[in-house]
Design a protein around this nucleic acid. Structure first.
Length: 934
RNA sequence: GCCCGAGUGGUGGAAUUGGUAGACACGUUGGACUUAAAAUCCAAUGACCAUUGCGGUCGUGCGGGUUCAAGUCCCGCCUCGGGUACCA
């Protein structure tokens, strides 16, 4: 009877659960260590082999830190709100909560099977009212706060009201929407509603008209990641942009702090870079172009604000462009152009996302007939409308410098507008822009054709121009961010209800004691006939006083933005978390998760945390000190090809003859790339009436190696592997696959090797009849050396998160001890402890079989002693001109001169020295000898 | 297009600070045990040349460079993966 993983693993999992072995205490003399995994969305497909990769790594660290005497917080929970459960509810009528709870149960069972050391008493679920109470509570705090630029933090709206009452808003520096200046008296004379409307411009959670991805066929707004190529991912329906009243979070107030904070965290550079790009800080100038009167003679009072990063090229601005949505388009267009401009704006608005994306290169636009005046040279430049200028960035208007911007260049060429070169590379002669094929790169160079800045370098010219514009009062240096405020409303059922009701049409927050506002029952999980969100179907969806409640729900990232805080004090009924708990746990020491959350969760969380920091609720400004991205375990996806606009699916080899859209299909419906068409029809209701265009009587699927994810339906689940090899083998194998942060395709081939290793380890302790072989004899030098070498390496490898080499080191250790036929307790006992982080079940079993009570997870980690690692001799590789020719064994402490002498005198050296003179000998102690001959 | 990351045997990967390239596994081949299989154990396994033995040449995507010494550093490319996209 050999290693029986099934019994052993079940036994110890039960033991851990019964004894609450991994419970973390909020009061402890021990130093704290907080290891966190990104919590999963419990999908119906269950856990796949990619999920545990990060969990295993973090579990190894958590277990290791416990051995070192840390009080470890290692919690797990569920990001329980999400579209799949809601979609399922729409299709079947099953309440998403039922589906979600079922999926959570399955997740829990799967997680337990892998033997994680989570403190399950701290589990949170975002869909649990006890949890989302605090999500709602935070929303109210955001609603009741504004961002004061002077103090550079969030402050109460109540304070802002006081300022308004005392001195109006002229001295207020806030991150807010455009608001007219008013005095204290004017403020007091406003009606309550008017005051509320103004305050809305300042609130960090605010209601406004926003452009959204509207899918008429599905009757709902879609998040950006639910839209693919301008079509809805589910169903393939067209998506259009539409203005809707939506809640937003004023995350832009934190743009600079979000950027600065990146300097303070230990995150992968690539991920920091992604966040920097997402925040998209650009320095430049805001400037004002006045309008010329229609007859072209004089200036008008009105003007156009533009943002540019290159004020130094202002003399090369030969025209201006407004976004079709720009508010001035209507008013400045001259009567003769009204019709054309109107048509263009209409056309541009109705153009779907898809068209916009596929026709990026196509140049379109219309002249308004109006002119603006270049403030520096008083030249009149024509104002155009074109959709290559986006309403959402900067001011929605640009000064076009065709000589030095590729888009402006294309536009100027197409409409025959003048091009003036204003930057030139040092030492080059200007050329005629008419002969150019593309715009001229102007990042560096000398300014020409530009009046007072002629001859300056780009950098000087930028600051000189800004100075001049400021002096003239027509412009100012400005920093612009690409980051947009986060749209926070979803027309969905399965999400947190907003703690908001409407009184006289104005939103009002619920009182704290009215939280949580629980999700109501509805008859159907669809929008109403009038297009209102599903919550509008709920009976009596009003406050006690009869005021209507908000019918939108919060998006997926709401609940995940602060979950790491709730873990610190998850059962607190009075507060989000206690101050003491937060002071003790502070922030996450190690956070492991995928980099797909770079621009979403990881920005929102940082924002959320900073906001709570401003409120004095959390003591650390950055939530995640160190972060590791686990690489994705890639899967092999299968595809079917839907003929555009139909429910017909064409086989892989024939797809080129049609206009098709590739859709992922569940790999379980596919064998050797052949689709089980009947199973496919039953897979999802959308496909029920699917028709197929076959080749050779079969439907052949396309395939691709890409990341394994529920949406790609290429999930490989771990249950079968655990059944066959055990959790310890799975843990070791997932780590053995390669570096934790690298992507790698899943392949079960190598798992046998890891399984063999565990069996071999087992045989060090037991004979074929399961009799313990361990003796109390003294260990030999050689055995001690193997042990101590391994202890050092295992520690090292965990500290630097090199788990794959960690596994190799166990293997080397076991190979060597097997070779030595080691049976010594002095060696095998520490080895069991050493193994615990990676293969905890086997470690527990060995520990108890060695005669110990209690869990090995509480025992101190083995120390290594350098004295056992000392080598008396070192085998020098001796190379000639860099090529290793022979080995030379020398005492480890031999002086370089001695080594040199011995190397040159060695028999093997003679054939390489023959007829050559020694130019130089390099001896690097305990490394190498290199003899240069020639 | 732009920004990141990666290219090492048949495969996954190792080489932590410029110092023996290919650790540890998988796979393959041969062998032991067995009636047989499984399990286990042993041996070989980068390519090429030589093969009676000693051995030699090449080799970390490609082309250059720095160095006594380069997978590792520098310059110029190529390929693959990821992110992002009219961001002024």
């Amino acid at each position: 009877m050999a290693y029986n993983h099934q019994d052993i693993e079940k036994k110890w999992q039960q033991y851990w659960s019964k004894h609450k072995t991994f419970k973390a205490e909020n009061h402890s003399e021990k130093p704290k260590f907080y290891v966190l995994d990104m919590f999963p969305y419990p999908s119906g497909a269950g856990l796949h082999v990619g999920h545990p990769l990060g969990y295993i790594a973090s579990d190894i660290v958590a277990r290791y830190k416990r051995h070192l005497g840390f009080n470890v917080l290692h919690p797990m929970g569920y990001d329980a709100y999400g579209l799949p459960a809601e979609q399922y509810a729409i299709q079947t009528g099953t309440h998403p909560e039922i589906t979600t709870n079922k999926n959570i149960q399955r997740y829990r069972q799967q997680l337990d099977q892998i033997g994680f050391s989570f403190d399950w008493d701290r589990e949170v679920r975002t869909s649990d009212p006890e949890y989302y109470k605090w999500t709602q509570w935070t929303f109210i705090q955001l609603f009741e706060s504004w961002y004061n630029r002077k103090s550079d933090k969030a402050e109460p709206i109540a304070d802002l009201k006081k300022i308004f009452e005392e001195e109006g808003n002229q001295k207020v520096e806030a991150v807010c929407d455009e608001t007219p200046v008013f005095s204290a008296d004017e403020w007091k004379s406003k009606s309550d509603t008017e005051q509320q409307e103004i305050l809305m411009n300042y609130r960090l959670a605010y209601l406004s008209e926003t452009l959204v991805n509207w899918c008429p066929a599905l009757g709902t707004v879609l998040a950006n990641d639910e839209v693919k190529d301008g079509l809805s991912e589910r169903g393939g329906h067209p998506v259009e942009r539409k203005l809707m009243k939506q809640w937003s979070l004023r995350i832009t107030a934190y743009a600079q702090r979000l950027l600065d904070g990146l300097e303070k965290v230990d995150w992968p550079d690539s991920l920091k870079e992604m966040q920097r790009n997402w925040i998209g800080r650009s320095e430049g100038a805001a400037l004002h172009f006045q309008l010329a009167k229609p007859d072209g003679s004089e200036k008008q009072a009105e003007g156009i604000e533009v943002f540019t990063t290159r004020p130094d090229t202002l003399f090369g601005a030969t025209f201006m462009v407004l976004a079709p949505e720009h508010e001035l388009v209507d008013s400045i267009t001259i009567p003769e152009q009204k019709e054309k401009v109107g048509e263009y704006v209409q056309w541009a608005k109705n153009r779907s996302e898809r068209e916009r994306m596929t026709e990026v290169k196509k140049v379109t636009g219309v002249f308004t007939g109006a002119y603006a005046i270049n403030p520096l040279n008083n030249q009149q430049v024509p104002i155009w409308v074109a959709d290559y200028v986006l309403a959402g960035y900067g001011t929605g208007a640009i000064m076009a410098v065709p000589a030095h911007d590729s888009r402006d260049f294309a536009f100027a060429r197409h409409f025959n507008l003048p091009i003036i070169q204003v930057v030139i590379e040092e030492g080059e002669e200007p050329s005629d822009p008419a002969t150019w094929e593309e715009s001229y790169d102007s990042k560096e160079g000398i300014i020409i054709n530009s009046g007072f800045i002629n001859g300056m370098k780009v950098k000087e010219a930028i600051s000189a121009t800004i100075q001049k514009l400021e002096a003239m009062g027509v412009g100012t240096g400005k920093i612009n961010y690409r980051l947009r405020d986060a749209i926070f409303s979803r027309q969905r059922y399965w999400g947190e209800p907003f703690p908001i009701y409407y009184k006289d049409g104005m939103p009002q927050p619920l009182k704290e004691e009215e939280l949580p506002l629980e999700l109501p029952e509805v008859d159907k999980y669809l929008p109403t006939e009038t297009g209102a969100p599903p919550l509008a179907r709920a009976q009596n969806w009003t406050t006690k006083d009869g005021y209507p409640l908000e019918t939108n729900t919060m998006p997926g990232f709401a609940g995940s933005s602060g979950y790491y805080l709730r873990y610190m004090d998850p059962r607190n009924e009075k507060e989000y978390f206690s101050k003491e708990a937060n002071q003790y746990w502070r922030n996450v020491d190690l956070y492991i998760g995928g980099d797909e959350h770079a621009a979403g969760h990881l920005i929102y969380s940082r924002f959320w945390n900073k906001f709570l920091y401003d409120l004095g609720l959390v003591c650390e400004e950055e939530p995640f000190k160190k972060l590791i991205n686990q690489g994705k375990i890639q899967g092999r996806s299968s595809f079917v090809y839907r003929v555009q606009g139909t429910n017909q699916y064409v086989s892989y080899g024939l797809r080129k003859q049609y206009d098709t859209q590739a859709l992922h299909v569940d790999i379980n419906l596919v064998e050797n790339d052949v689709l089980d068409t009947e199973a496919f029809k039953n897979w999802m209701p959308d496909y029920k009436n699917a028709e197929f265009i076959l080749e050779d009587g079969k439907y052949i699927c396309g395939h691709e190696v890409e990341k394994m994810s529920k949406s790609k339906h290429n999930v490989q689940n771990p249950d079968d592997l655990i059944e066959r090899y055990g959790a310890d083998t799975l843990r070791l194998y997932e780590m053995f696959l390669g570096p934790i942060d690298q992507h790698k395709p899943w392949d079960t081939q190598g798992i046998e090797g890891v399984f063999r290793f565990l069996k071999k380890l087992w045989r060090l302790y037991f004979d074929e009849n399961d009799q313990l072989l361990v003796t109390d004899d003294r260990a030999s030098e050689a055995e001690l050396k193997v042990l101590h070498k391994t202890v050092k390496k295992i520690r090292d490898d965990i500290e630097r998160f090199s788990f794959n080499t960690g596994v190799s080191n166990y293997m080397i250790c076991v190979n060597e001890l097997s070779e030595l036929k080691c049976r010594k307790r002095e060696i095998l006992e520490p080895l069991a402890v050493l193994l615990e982080p990676y293969a905890p079940h086997m470690a527990e079993e060995l520990w108890s079989k060695l005669g110990h009570e209690g869990s090995v997870s509480q025992v101190n980690f083995p120390e290594f002693d350098e004295k056992y690692l000392k080598e008396d001799n070192f085998e020098y590789p001796v190379s000639f001109n860099g090529k290793v020719r022979f080995k030379l064994s020398m005492p480890a402490d031999a002086a370089p001169a001695e080594v040199e002498k011995a190397a040159l005198a060695a028999d093997e050296a003679q054939r390489w020295l023959e007829g050559k003179s020694v130019r130089k000998v390099i001896v690097v102690p305990k490394r190498i000898v290199n003899i240069v001959v020639g």
